[in-house]
Each structure stands twice: as C-alpha cells, then as structure tokens.
C-alpha cells in the first residue's frame, strides 16, 4: 500500500513536470519549420500550392534525424545500429570512469589532510 501511494506521488510529480514542460514549450514563439528534404525537392520542382506545414502529416513534417533509417526496418538488423548501442555504452563507461576517479581523488584529499594534522 505504501509502495502504491509513493508510486502515485512520483507519477503525479512526473506528470506535473511533463505538463509544465509542455506548456513552457507551447508558449515559445513559433520555431523554425522542420526541414524535410522531400518537401524542398517538391518546392524546387514547381507546383507548391499544396505544400505547407498544415498539409503535411506529422511524420512527413519531421526533420530527417537520427531515426531516418529506422522506418525501413524490414531489411533486418543493421550492424551499425548495434555499433551505436556499443558506442553509447563505451561513452557511458568512459564518463563513469572519469567521474569515479575524480570523486575518489576528492574524497582522498580530506583524508590525507586529516592524517597530516594528527
């Protein structure tokens, strides 16, 4: 029961933060329209009377980002995708290693000072 109560409190805090973030971003002035290479190509080719942010479906109105290649997942698992997971794991390990070394060094300093005074 206590667990459920705490779970609801944390969930409520998460929802509150989420709603706050949503309205904060919505209050921002209109940002730069997303760039779609296909959209630009059609514009260059001529008839662009139907082209506009409102005429595009949400998935068409998104920039070609890191997930550009994931819609054609039927072609199977890509090695570079697995390499991406490994790359992030290595990056995480390196940051953790550096942080551990720094925190150990910082913790050691007062201990050394203590032994010198005694």
């Amino acid at each position: 029961m206590t667990f459920l109560f705490r779970f609801i409190i944390v969930l409520a805090a998460a929802v509150g933060l989420g709603v706050g973030l949503y309205y904060t971003v919505q209050m921002l002035p209109d940002d730069v329209p997303s760039f779609d290479p296909g959209d630009a190509r059609v514009r260059l080719e001529g008839d662009n009377s139907q082209i506009g942010e409102s005429s595009l479906r949400p998935e068409e109105n998104r920039p070609e980002g890191f997930e550009g290649g994931e819609r054609d997942r039927d072609r199977g698992i890509r090695l570079y995708a697995l390499a991406g997971v490994i790359r992030r794991f290595v990056m995480f390990s390196v940051i953790t290693f550096i942080a551990v070394v720094v925190s150990k060094l910082l913790k050691r300093k007062p201990a050394r000072a203590k032994t010198q005074t005694s």
């Binding site: 994931e70 890509r78 995708a81 991406g84």
Partner: peptide, 15 residues
Amino acid sequence: FLVAMEPRATGITIH
C-alpha cells in the same frame, strides 16, 4: 536506456 537511445537498433515502434 542504452537500447532506447539507439532507435535504429529496434525500429521506431519498439523504441
């Protein structure tokens, strides 16, 4: 978290 950070590995739906 690590797997979710690489949507190419899972596809957008699973991500």
